[in-house]
Nucleic acid binder design. Structure first.
Lengths: 162, 162
DNA sequence: TATTGTTATACTCTATAACTATA
DNA sequence: TATAGTTATAGAGTATAACAATA
């Protein structure tokens, strides 16, 4: 008789983690919202990427990625060029300016984390990081993705008091 | 010489966890968006709460909480009544309908987690849950909150190609 | 025809500020 | 005056659908 309570508790914590993400977002430079910042991080980690691959790593639709990339290109953080081998593909990589912004972002975010988690044993930080990576990997392999396409939600409006 | 790389890696994983949250959100009933669902979870866990306390648990502004609560009340999931001891305060609790929706939500979300994390050792699930709770607690104590008020970000628009 | 990427649109979530009501 | 909560508004993030360009 395996209880589902552990999964319920995990879901609860995942639902509450937004607070931490928003707190970290406050550290970002004025003209760099969270989504572009994550994008820069991935380019810094993986080097040159194409749009579809980047969207896959971000876990969002290509259309969304396209918008964020356009923003980053306009700000001079990302270089976007056509793939010489396939005219449809666009290759993305950090510019020097993008690398500097990324380094500065890392510095600020690390500082905030160090401030809040200063009393954490180093191994707990590592364990949490590793478990989060594993969690994402366990959800990573698509397959149940296409099945639930177009589900969406009802319009979310609050009626006036009348 | 303590390296900041572990914090950078943790920040990276936190930035990528949105994928999992969105995947879980797909399980919610059509007329119950994620935010109201989290709200029901907290009322199910803590029982009757006032607005400010609920907003604190959610980690969002009271104005946001007010909107979500109004939505839940309109759908008959939450009962909202004035505190007999203080006319300004509003007390919130689940209705029978809200409890049923919550149970159904838990069932679906647990099912999805069981599907994706089926091969995880139970103790890893528990460890991740516990570390996430601790992470939130470490960020929970306000104080650096007021200091960074009104920071915000630049308008986030992509210029047309002209 | 199939694939890659872009753009338009609609919806959710959030914070800020201005407001009402009660203490 | 101070506190609890509501509402209006604007910005950020996302998915869907329709589209253009290339394979």
């Amino acid at each position: 008789m395996t209880s589902h309570a552990p999964y319920r508790d995990l879901a609860r914590e995942l639902g509450s983690i937004g607070t931490v993400r928003r707190e970290l977002a406050r550290d970002l430079p004025y003209d760099c919202p969270p989504a572009p910042a994550v994008l820069l991080t991935l380019l810094g980690r993986h080097g040159e990427l194409r749009m579809t691959r980047l969207a896959d790593l971000l876990g969002v639709d290509v259309s969304v990625t396209s918008r964020h990339v356009a923003y980053a290109v306009e700000h001079g953080w990302v270089d976007r060029r056509p793939d010489p081998l396939d005219g449809r593909v666009r290759l993305l990589r950090l510019t020097g300016s993008g690398e500097r912004l990324l380094a500065e972002t890392h510095r600020r975010v690390s500082e905030t984390l160090a401030h809040h988690l200063g009393d954490w044993p180093a191994e707990d930080v590592g364990r949490l990081t590793e478990l989060l990576a594993r969690l994402r990997a366990s959800f990573g392999d698509r397959g149940c993705r296409t099945a639930s396409r177009g589900a969406g939600h009802a319009p979310y409006r609050t009626a006036a008091h009348d």
